[in-house]
Amino acid sequence: MVTSRTRATSGALVSRLALIVGVVFLVVGIAGFIPGLTSNYDQMTFAGHHSDALLLGVFQVSVLHNIVHLLFGIAGIAMARRVDTARLYLIGGGAIYLLLWLYGLIINESSGANFLPINNADDWLHFVLGLGMIGLGLLASRRADTARQ
């Protein structure tokens, strides 16, 4: 027989994972505004593919891109408070990142459609983030469901 303590622990895992992911996005959003962590900082634009700023010298960022990371991080921290919203954040956020990955593969990086901006490194990071977030959400949900039985 599974106790309510086991259910609470399993539910807490989903919340903890969403909180961790949210904090990571928040840190990444802040890092995008720190010269040194972001090379070519003086060439950062608000939006668009003309921004030459590179987070960690690899990932193309702009002010808008950094704001999106900050907002995504805040959403994760806020949604981590409840099991159902934490699960939604991980699985739904992962789906958004997979769509962003596809979008990055389809658009021309030097076109106006690349408004965030994103480069090839961003595309593949979005793919890994999408799969990872969905995997965490499903795995933690499965543990919570197993604990309920």
Rank of each mutant, 00 (worst) to 15 (best):
D123T: 05
D84P: 00
D42A: 10
Y41C: 02
I134H: 04
A8V: 11
L138T: 09
T9Q: 13
I30P: 05
M79Y: 12
N108E: 07
R87F: 04
S141D: 15
M79T: 03
V68D: 01
M79W: 14
L138R: 07
L139D: 07
V63I: 12
L54P: 10
I74K: 03
V27S: 06
L139F: 10
F33N: 13
L55N: 05
L139A: 14
G48D: 07
R82K: 14
N114L: 07
L71P: 02
G104W: 06
L26F: 10
I20C: 03
G73P: 00
A47I: 03
I77M: 08
D145G: 05
F59S: 12
H65F: 07
W101G: 10
N66C: 07
A78V: 12
I30Y: 05
T38L: 08
N119G: 07
Y97V: 05
W124S: 02
F25K: 00
A78E: 00
N108F: 09
T45A: 08
L98K: 02
G104Q: 08
S110A: 12
F33E: 15
Y41N: 07
L37T: 08
L17P: 01
R148E: 12
L54V: 06
T45K: 10
V2W: 13
F25Q: 03
G137C: 01
I96H: 05
S4R: 14
N114Q: 11
N66Q: 04
V83R: 11
T85P: 11
L54R: 15
G73H: 04
N66I: 04
L129V: 06
G29M: 02
Q43D: 14
L125F: 09
S39Q: 11
G36Q: 06
L55P: 00
G57S: 10
D122S: 02
L88I: 09
R5Q: 15
L136M: 14
L88Q: 03
V2E: 07
G135C: 06
G112W: 12
D42I: 06
A144Q: 15
L102H: 01
T6Y: 12
Q149K: 14
G29V: 00
R7M: 15
H50W: 07
L55D: 09
Q43E: 15
L138P: 10
A31V: 05
P35H: 05
N108G: 00
G135P: 03
N120Q: 11
V63K: 03
V61R: 10
M44I: 07
I74L: 11
F33W: 05
I106P: 03
I20M: 09
A12M: 12
